[in-house]
Amino acid sequence: MKLDHKKVIKVGMAEWKQIEFPNTIRTSGLGSCVGVVVYDQWKKKAALAHIMLPDSTMAKYKQINRAKFADTAIEDVVAVLQTKGCSIQNMKAKIAGGAQMFSISSTNDIMRIGPRNAEAVKKILRKYRIPVAAEDIGGNKGRTIEFDPELSTLHIRTVNQGEAVI
Protein backbone atom coordinates (compact mmCIF):
# COMPACT_ATOMS: atom_id res chain seq x y z
CA MET A 1 0.00 0.00 0.00
CA LYS A 2 1.29 3.40 -0.89
CA LEU A 3 1.20 5.83 1.96
CA ASP A 4 -0.14 9.25 1.17
CA HIS A 5 1.14 12.31 2.88
CA LYS A 6 -0.61 12.71 6.15
CA LYS A 7 -2.87 15.74 6.32
CA VAL A 8 -4.58 17.40 9.26
CA ILE A 9 -8.13 18.30 8.35
CA LYS A 10 -9.50 21.26 10.32
CA VAL A 11 -13.09 21.48 11.46
CA GLY A 12 -14.53 24.87 12.42
CA MET A 13 -17.24 25.73 14.88
CA ALA A 14 -20.68 24.45 13.82
CA GLU A 15 -19.13 22.23 11.14
CA TRP A 16 -18.39 18.57 10.63
CA LYS A 17 -16.01 16.72 8.32
CA GLN A 18 -15.16 13.12 7.54
CA ILE A 19 -11.68 11.65 7.06
CA GLU A 20 -9.81 8.37 6.80
CA PHE A 21 -6.34 7.04 7.52
CA PRO A 22 -3.63 8.40 7.10
CA ASN A 23 -5.19 11.81 7.69
CA THR A 24 -6.09 13.16 11.09
CA ILE A 25 -8.88 15.52 12.01
CA ARG A 26 -8.76 18.42 14.41
CA THR A 27 -10.83 21.21 15.93
CA SER A 28 -9.56 24.09 18.09
CA GLY A 29 -10.91 26.17 20.90
CA LEU A 30 -13.72 24.01 22.23
CA GLY A 31 -15.32 25.84 25.14
CA SER A 32 -18.94 25.03 25.87
CA CYS A 33 -19.08 23.34 22.47
CA VAL A 34 -18.57 19.59 22.22
CA GLY A 35 -16.31 17.82 19.73
CA VAL A 36 -17.86 14.48 18.80
CA VAL A 37 -15.71 11.94 16.97
CA VAL A 38 -17.55 8.96 15.54
CA TYR A 39 -15.19 6.35 14.12
CA ASP A 40 -14.80 2.82 12.82
CA GLN A 41 -11.57 1.39 14.19
CA TRP A 42 -11.42 -1.44 11.59
CA LYS A 43 -11.99 0.73 8.54
CA LYS A 44 -9.91 3.56 10.07
CA LYS A 45 -12.50 6.14 9.11
CA ALA A 46 -13.80 8.91 11.31
CA ALA A 47 -15.94 12.03 11.36
CA LEU A 48 -15.68 14.96 13.74
CA ALA A 49 -18.52 17.37 14.52
CA HIS A 50 -18.02 20.62 16.48
CA ILE A 51 -21.48 21.19 17.92
CA MET A 52 -22.68 24.35 19.70
CA LEU A 53 -26.19 23.58 20.90
CA PRO A 54 -27.91 20.47 22.25
CA ASP A 55 -31.08 20.37 20.23
CA SER A 56 -32.28 21.64 16.84
CA THR A 57 -35.65 22.55 18.32
CA MET A 58 -33.81 25.48 19.97
CA ALA A 59 -33.46 27.13 16.57
CA LYS A 60 -35.59 30.23 16.16
CA TYR A 61 -35.88 29.90 12.38
CA LYS A 62 -36.61 26.91 10.19
CA GLN A 63 -33.55 27.18 7.96
CA ILE A 64 -30.84 25.66 10.11
CA ASN A 65 -27.23 24.68 9.87
CA ARG A 66 -27.54 21.01 10.84
CA ALA A 67 -23.91 20.82 11.94
CA LYS A 68 -24.58 23.23 14.80
CA PHE A 69 -26.90 20.99 16.84
CA ALA A 70 -26.07 17.72 18.58
CA ASP A 71 -29.09 15.82 17.25
CA THR A 72 -28.85 16.79 13.58
CA ALA A 73 -25.03 16.77 13.44
CA ILE A 74 -24.73 13.25 14.86
CA GLU A 75 -27.47 12.01 12.53
CA ASP A 76 -25.54 13.37 9.52
CA VAL A 77 -22.17 12.12 10.74
CA VAL A 78 -23.50 8.59 11.23
CA ALA A 79 -25.14 8.69 7.80
CA VAL A 80 -21.96 9.80 6.02
CA LEU A 81 -19.90 7.07 7.70
CA GLN A 82 -22.50 4.55 6.55
CA THR A 83 -22.15 5.74 2.96
CA LYS A 84 -18.38 5.22 3.36
CA GLY A 85 -19.01 1.56 4.16
CA CYS A 86 -18.91 1.65 7.95
CA SER A 87 -21.65 -0.23 9.74
CA ILE A 88 -23.26 1.28 12.78
CA GLN A 89 -22.43 -1.79 14.93
CA ASN A 90 -18.72 -1.06 14.49
CA MET A 91 -18.96 2.63 15.28
CA LYS A 92 -17.64 4.08 18.49
CA ALA A 93 -17.40 7.64 19.75
CA LYS A 94 -14.95 9.81 21.66
CA ILE A 95 -16.12 13.14 22.97
CA ALA A 96 -14.51 16.22 24.52
CA GLY A 97 -15.55 19.73 25.48
CA GLY A 98 -18.73 20.88 27.20
CA ALA A 99 -16.92 23.18 29.61
CA GLN A 100 -18.35 26.12 31.45
CA MET A 101 -15.84 28.84 30.68
CA PHE A 102 -17.31 31.54 32.88
CA SER A 103 -19.06 31.33 36.21
CA ILE A 104 -21.92 33.72 35.75
CA SER A 105 -24.93 33.19 37.91
CA SER A 106 -27.91 33.62 35.73
CA THR A 107 -31.46 32.43 35.81
CA ASN A 108 -30.97 31.85 32.12
CA ASP A 109 -30.22 28.23 31.32
CA ILE A 110 -27.96 29.34 28.51
CA MET A 111 -24.97 29.70 30.83
CA ARG A 112 -25.13 25.98 31.55
CA ILE A 113 -24.90 25.16 27.87
CA GLY A 114 -21.66 23.17 28.14
CA PRO A 115 -23.01 20.43 30.44
CA ARG A 116 -26.27 20.40 28.48
CA ASN A 117 -24.38 19.88 25.21
CA ALA A 118 -22.46 16.97 26.72
CA GLU A 119 -25.63 15.35 28.08
CA ALA A 120 -27.40 15.72 24.74
CA VAL A 121 -24.50 14.20 22.79
CA LYS A 122 -24.42 11.15 25.08
CA LYS A 123 -28.16 10.71 24.88
CA ILE A 124 -28.17 10.80 21.09
CA LEU A 125 -25.23 8.41 20.84
CA ARG A 126 -27.12 6.01 23.13
CA LYS A 127 -30.08 6.22 20.79
CA TYR A 128 -27.87 4.96 17.93
CA ARG A 129 -26.25 2.41 20.30
CA ILE A 130 -22.85 3.91 19.60
CA PRO A 131 -20.68 3.37 22.71
CA VAL A 132 -18.64 6.27 24.08
CA ALA A 133 -15.14 4.75 24.24
CA ALA A 134 -13.61 7.75 25.99
CA GLU A 135 -14.57 11.22 27.10
CA ASP A 136 -13.07 14.35 28.57
CA ILE A 137 -15.92 16.70 29.31
CA GLY A 138 -16.90 19.46 31.70
CA GLY A 139 -14.64 21.60 33.83
CA ASN A 140 -13.82 25.18 32.92
CA LYS A 141 -11.02 24.78 30.41
CA GLY A 142 -10.83 25.22 26.66
CA ARG A 143 -9.70 22.25 24.59
CA THR A 144 -8.16 21.59 21.21
CA ILE A 145 -8.59 18.03 20.00
CA GLU A 146 -7.13 15.90 17.25
CA PHE A 147 -8.22 12.40 16.30
CA ASP A 148 -5.96 9.88 14.61
CA PRO A 149 -7.98 7.07 13.00
CA GLU A 150 -4.92 4.79 12.77
CA LEU A 151 -4.97 3.99 16.49
CA SER A 152 -8.32 5.61 17.32
CA THR A 153 -6.61 8.04 19.66
CA LEU A 154 -7.89 11.45 20.62
CA HIS A 155 -5.24 13.99 21.62
CA ILE A 156 -6.46 16.76 23.88
CA ARG A 157 -4.56 19.96 24.50
CA THR A 158 -5.45 22.51 27.17
CA VAL A 159 -3.80 25.76 28.17
CA ASN A 160 -2.73 24.92 31.69
CA GLN A 161 -3.26 21.21 32.11
CA GLY A 162 -1.04 20.14 29.26
CA GLU A 163 -1.85 17.33 26.85
CA ALA A 164 -3.66 14.07 27.26
CA VAL A 165 -4.49 11.14 25.01
CA ILE A 166 -7.75 9.28 25.45
Binding site: M13, G29, L53, A59, S106, N140
Partner: peptide, 26 residues
Amino acid sequence: SVPSLAVDMAGAVMSSGLIEISQAGD
Protein backbone atom coordinates in the same frame (compact mmCIF):
# COMPACT_ATOMS: atom_id res chain seq x y z
CA SER B 1 -24.16 40.77 35.32
CA VAL B 2 -21.18 40.42 37.64
CA PRO B 3 -18.27 39.93 35.24
CA SER B 4 -16.35 36.69 35.20
CA LEU B 5 -12.71 36.25 34.23
CA ALA B 6 -11.23 33.34 32.29
CA VAL B 7 -7.72 32.87 30.98
CA ASP B 8 -7.88 30.42 28.13
CA MET B 9 -7.93 29.91 24.37
CA ALA B 10 -9.58 32.81 22.56
CA GLY B 11 -11.82 30.47 20.56
CA ALA B 12 -13.11 28.74 23.67
CA VAL B 13 -13.96 31.94 25.53
CA MET B 14 -15.49 33.75 22.57
CA SER B 15 -17.86 30.91 21.81
CA SER B 16 -19.54 31.45 25.18
CA GLY B 17 -20.78 34.79 23.93
CA LEU B 18 -22.29 33.32 20.81
CA ILE B 19 -24.70 30.81 22.31
CA GLU B 20 -27.70 33.10 22.43
CA ILE B 21 -27.02 34.34 18.90
CA SER B 22 -26.45 30.87 17.52
CA GLN B 23 -30.06 29.95 18.21
CA ALA B 24 -31.16 32.54 15.69
CA GLY B 25 -28.63 32.10 12.92
CA ASP B 26 -25.04 31.65 11.89
